[in-house]
Write a protein that binds this DNA or RNA. Structure first.
Length: 826
RNA sequence: GGGAGUAUAGCUCAGCUGGUUAGAGUGCCUGCAUCACACGCAGGAAGUCGCGGGUUCGAGUCCCUCUAUUCCCACCA
């Protein structure tokens, strides 16, 4: 079927229709097929609360390029899609929505809350998925998963019980990071530290029994003194040695607390004396454990001061600080205040300053899990691209602390642990527990907490393939091949998937982690909601088309590096799409009916061999680049071939042959169809929509470019000698054009050319090329010739003479014309 | 404090294991309505490859020092 193509490519006419065509053809679906080699990518599941942003667009584009390429190579290519329940983010959304109705979580209760959450998921959870489709993502939608679906829930329980039984999950009272806004614990990885301007308050604590003698402590958080249970000095500090064992009177609280010695204290920092607040500082908590100090929690869940704060109860942390400082000053305890910059931890979700909090939480013991994972990575079973990111991985995994996995949230996988009200022991089970495993009491209740979202994400590469069942899919597609993600997510997700895979599957979850950078705005700033500088990929798709967006994101992007996104770049990409479109139009307009498929003719002219040989090299290069994950280089080469080789040279050369007609024209048509048809396949992973649309219009066999074969390098098409010969002619043509431009001769003013050459290719084949591309009215080729008064252009292959009189006349005429027009302008 | 990245044309970036005269896009300048495309064509100007050393027949590329800049980790209250 041959279509009339519009002059300008309009993605809107093509994209949705084409995507539907693919869906209808079931091309994205991958089956277990022992005859094929599998290639698997699991998608980094976007949050159900999310909207497609540029980071997603980049991530999905890279994955789609890889999966489409492998599919065309004949692999059983599975791109497994899905979404993440995003516990904190989703719960926050529901709570917010309820607040508008005057409702609270506690008010409606757990069950009703979860009903609402699932309803919300049903309504909005699909939004991000439909946005992925707009990009052209060729995911196997039949296998779409959700981190909280039944299968994932089974996997989570299996893992939890398994690790608990191995002693790798435990419950303990620890100082954890608490977000007073989200009202839940968060893990170490979920705290972002930012340098903030603050103060260093020096406070005098009077020493008991030594009238007038003070111990000067320095702190950045004076309000926490309400929970002080000791002050500490270094055991070797001569200044304070005599005081260890004595007591100080805690100002404002008027309570005696001991002076202890602990090597945690740095003698050279501050005054060398530290107030110890086990409840509100993780280091102090450790000191407290060593010295058996009481823990006095002075704050509520929302970080307001509780009854332990005495008269300060009810104040916020900030109000309390002001009040405490004022009271210290009034009491004469405040020695001095100095400005101080220090790092303050904030919640990665909401940015609220976290509060250390001592509470009972569930933890994953990391060391025994990290070790075999690290060995596997060190052995090269999983490779990072670019390599340097393994350093980041190792740095984290080798220093990793136990992972706090319990969250005081309702939306998520509930912890499969039950407490006995009679014997107080814990029963952990995959099934609903109705009686205590230890004393058989039926007075049991389940832990109200849920698991960190990342606990279920960590299992994604195998939970999505059916684990814990040993499904055919799991056997065939696991381990997966490539994981594509940003460097910002290595700790949260990549590391945890690796140790989970090694632990539960006995094999790393993927062989390659392709790391990309951040997409920044045109000024190089991070795109953020607060700056309002985010660029909406859907708007870009709407204006320029998905192919232009994908091309932009794939170009000029080397692995691991950040990139800037600008309208200029998308514009250039859109222009490229249009260029391809018009080249196809030209070809379709000139293809006679007898050219039915893209096959080379028997006889190849010099320029045919040149372009075919160039194409052949392109196949090899693009494939090699893809194998090495150099997607940006691959797409650049395609661009160069299509625009420069194909459009600017080969199509131009064909024009004269088409006019001449006959055998030469027919052969040119065949070659042209060939060098358009095949590179389209190479380009398809990058620009799927336009390539499919043109491919459909070209005379071909097969129903979709998606299932056409990825081209392979063919040694028989390597015409290196002819390439070199033809390039000599090209150089000569360029030289003539160059000289004409210098002399301001417009293309419409044609001149006679005398070409003097010993070069056989130029001698026998050059004439039509010069006529068309060097704007010659007539071409005379000679082995030797002298011409008086001619402009001479000398190149490697030929000496070209342009009769002076013709050009001089033209030049004069031009000068006259330009004078006239400048007069007219005035 | 520890680690990593980046520095190449006005701007945004390529440049893989060292090898012709350092490339592209965009912007700029000149010319062009030539029958695929002005979202175009032809031509042009534009670079001390951050600085200084070193290795080499040969360095944008490898090594060292320094400078600027970005990021990650840790954290001393």
């Amino acid at each position: 079927m041959r279509k009339e193509l519009d002059k300008v490519y309009d993605p809107k006419q093509v994209e949705d229709r084409t995507y539907q065509f693919w869906l209808d053809g079931d091309y994205f679906h991958a089956e277990v097929d022992p005859k094929k080699e599998p290639y698997t990518i699991v998608i980094p599941p976007p949050n159900i609360t999310g909207q497609l942003h540029m980071g997603h667009a980049l991530d999905e584009t890279l994955q789609d390029i890889l999966i489409r390429w492998r599919r065309m190579q004949g692999r059983a290519a599975l791109w497994l899609p899905g979404t993440d329940h995003a516990s904190i983010a989703t719960e926050a959304k529901i709570v917010e929505a309820m607040r508008a109705e005057g409702l609270t979580k506690e008010g409606i209760g757990r069950e009703k809350f979860l009903e609402r959450a699932w309803e919300w998921k049903r309504q909005y959870g699909g939004r991000i998925v439909s946005q992925l489709k707009k990009l052209g993502s060729s995911c196997d939608w039949e296998r779409e998963r959700f981190t909280m679906d039944e299968g994932c829930n089974r996997a989570v329980k299996e893992v939890f019980v398994n690790l608990y039984e191995k002693g790798l999950i435990y419950r303990g009272e620890r100082s954890i990071n608490w977000c007073p806004h989200c009202k839940t614990s968060i893990s170490e990885a979920e705290v972002n530290y930012d340098e903030k301007d603050g103060f260093f308050w020096h406070i005098n604590y009077p020493i008991v029994g030594e009238e007038g003698r003070m111990l000067e402590i320095a702190t950045t958080r004076p309000e926490t003194m309400l929970g002080d249970t000791a002050v500490a000095v270094h055991p070797d500090d001569e200044r304070y040695k005599d005081l260890v064992g004595k007591k100080v009177l805690l100002p404002l609280v008027n309570k005696e607390i001991p002076i202890i010695a602990d090597s945690y204290v740095e003698m050279d920092f501050g005054t060398g004396v530290v107030k110890i607040t086990p409840a509100h500082d993780p280091n102090d908590f450790e000191v407290g454990l060593r010295h058996d100090l009481p823990v006095i929690n002075i704050m509520n869940e929302d970080a307001t001061i509780n009854e332990n704060g005495g008269k300060y109860a009810g104040m916020t942390r900030e109000e309390c600080r002001k009040a405490v400082v004022a009271d210290l000053e009034a009491g004469g305890y405040l020695k001095k205040v100095e400005p101080y910059k220090h790092n303050v931890g904030g919640c990665y979700r909401c940015g609220t300053i976290i509060e250390p909090r001592v509470s009972k939480q569930w933890f994953v013991k990391m060391e025994p899990l990290a070790k075999p994972a690290n060995e596997a990575v060190r052995a090269g079973k999983t490779k990072f691209v670019p390599e340097r990111f393994d350093k980041i991985y190792f740095n984290w995994m080798e220093n990793v602390k136990d992972w706090c996995i319990s969250r005081q949230l309702w939306w998520g996988h509930r912890i499969p642990a039950w407490y006995c009200e009679d014997c107080g022991k814990i029963t952990v089970s995959k099934q609903e527990v109705t009686e205590c495993a230890h004393c058989h009491s039926t007075h049991v209740h389940q832990d109200p907490d849920t698991l960190d979202t990342w606990f279920s994400s960590a299992l994604w590469p195998f939970s999505t393939l059916g684990w814990p069942d040993q499904t055919e899919e799991l056997k065939y597609f696991y381990p997966t091949n490539t994981l594509v993600t940003g460097y910002d997510i290595i700790f949260f997700w990549v590391a945890r998937m690796i140790f989970s895979g090694v632990e539960h599957m006995g094999e790393v979850p993927f062989d390659t982690v392709l790391i990309h950078g951040l997409v920044r705005d045109a000024q190089g700033r991070k795109m953020s909601k607060s700056l309002g500088n985010g660029i909406d990929p859907l708007e870009i798709i709407d204006h320029y088309g998905a192919d232009a967006l994908r091309f932009t994101l794939a170009t000029g992007n080397s692995p691991g590096n950040d990139m800037r996104f600008s309208d200029e770049k998308v514009n250039a990409s859109r222009n490229f799409a249009n260029k391809i479109w018009n080249a196809s139009r030209f070809i379709l307009m000139n293809l006679s009916d007898e050219v039915t498929c893209a096959q080379l003719p028997e006889e190849l002219a010099l320029e045919d061999k040149w372009v075919v040989s160039k194409y052949n090299t392109l196949v090899r290069d693009v494939t090699e680049n893809l194998e090495k994950f150099e997607l940006g280089m691959a797409v650049q080469k395609l661009y160069d071939f299509i625009w420069d080789i194909l459009c600017d040279w080969y199509i131009e050369l064909c024009k004269s042959r088409f006019q001449a007609g006959g055998e030469s024209s027919l052969n040119a048509q065949k070659v042209l169809a060939y060098v358009m048809h095949h590179p389209l396949r190479l380009l398809h992973p990058f620009m799927p929509f336009i390539t499919e649309e043109i491919w459909q219009a070209l005379p071909h066999e097969g129903e979709s470019i998606m299932v056409s074969q990825w081209p392979v390098y063919d040694a028989a098409l390597d015409f290196a000698a002819e390439e070199a010969q033809f390039e000599k002619i090209m150089a000569a043509i360029r030289a003539v054009r160059n000289r004409r431009a210098e002399m301001n001769v417009p293309p419409s003013k044609k001149a006679k050319l005398y070409i003097v050459t010993q070069e056989p290719a130029v001698f026998t084949l050059g004439e039509p090329f010069f006529k068309r591309l060097a704007f010659a009215s007539e071409v005379i080729v000679a082995e030797d010739l002298q011409l008086e008064g001619a402009v001479q252009v000398i190149t490697d292959a030929a000496r070209i003479l342009i009769p002076m009189d013709e050009l001089v006349d033209k030049q004069k005429e031009l000068e006259r014309l330009s004078k006239e027009s400048s007069v007219r302008e005035r």
